[in-house]
Nucleic acid binder design. Sequence first.
DNA 1: TGCACTATGGCATACTATGCGCCATAATTA
DNA 2: TAATTATGGCGCATAGTATGCCATAGTGCA
Lengths: 196, 196
Amino acid sequence: MEQIDRRVRRTKKSLEEALIALALEKEYGEITIQEITDRADIGYRTFFRHYSDKDELLKEVLNSTMLELRELMAPPPLEYFIDPNIDAADLTDGAILFWHVQENSDLYRVLLFSDRTIIQPLEAFAIQEFKANYGSLLETDIPFDIIANHMVSAMITLLRWWLDNDMALSPEVMGEYSFRLIAQPIRETFLQALSK
Amino acid sequence: MEQIDRRVRRTKKSLEEALIALALEKEYGEITIQEITDRADIGYRTFFRHYSDKDELLKEVLNSTMLELRELMAPPPLEYFIDPNIDAADLTDGAILFWHVQENSDLYRVLLFSDRTIIQPLEAFAIQEFKANYGSLLETDIPFDIIANHMVSAMITLLRWWLDNDMALSPEVMGEYSFRLIAQPIRETFLQALSK
DNA sequence: TGCACTATGGCATACTATGCGCCATAATTA
DNA sequence: TAATTATGGCGCATAGTATGCCATAGTGCA
């Protein structure tokens, strides 16, 4: 579990920090391994002793944050969707995701604006998670795969916009907007399915 | 306007066809210029006499289709949004986009699954168009920029899913789903703004 | 503290892909 | 038919990735 050798720890940490710093300055795709090692003040050769790829380094960087995100999505507030009495104004839950992203905004900036190869596994996971949580419970006339895809990618779009606009709006406000634009229509599909 | 030399026409046509064929087989980013020229049976050197880039070739391929798409978005059915009496079932307009994509599915498969650098200009144009058509007319409490972003990218997501699933559902059905998941909640925001 | 271990740095090298200069050749236009 | 021009194929330069080799310096453990 532990990194035994201090040098390895130091090297990996430097490389990870360098990648984040560079990714905030320029397109992820434009960054060369040479630049990363220069920034980290690490030998070019050494990079390949720890990572096979630029992508592998990025994945490692994002790994812990992705794990947090998983837990964030884990507890499924089913009532959120199927209780018709809940009003958008009462739902602060929608802001949780925005709080989390705000706390790790540097990393999410990198994640959400990187190549499709990077974000796609996360997206696929989120979709699968959403389907596992709600798909079997409710029969909707709209294919659940469509709903899951729409939900996840619309949330990502909203997060991207928010980060692009320097998170000027509060997480609560964004949570409310996400409810009205994304969750509410899905909820209505659920309610419609239940009423049959 | 006309291509004077027959050879140029032949060369460009071959290269364009080769790119589409390859893009349907593998990731756009993985395709090399060498592969394109091999497939087109055109000298490698000749490629650069017509295009500076792989992207430039792709843009030229997609150009005419993008122009059609522009016109498709041009006539703004404002009633679509602000007439509260219109029901989702009556709105076949939403299917127009899906019809268009179905007719050019090969090209849209390439477009919608290519790099962000390719699709982003189109996306930006669609967002701007949408804002120009409706943004000044209606004051909404949700920033119009969010709405425009959400609308466009959610439609793209829906199209992607549809193409991924070999367009098994009819354009009409997809149009209805897009209305319920995307247009309807936006419409409600509009109606809410009007009632004040 | 000192020894065995191993991560690192720096060098050379191979490979892949892009991009262009040059010139003979073939196709096209007028 | 003659002048023009696109093409093909050659070589070459460049950039980035990826690996081998070996001396050196840092590390963990006895």
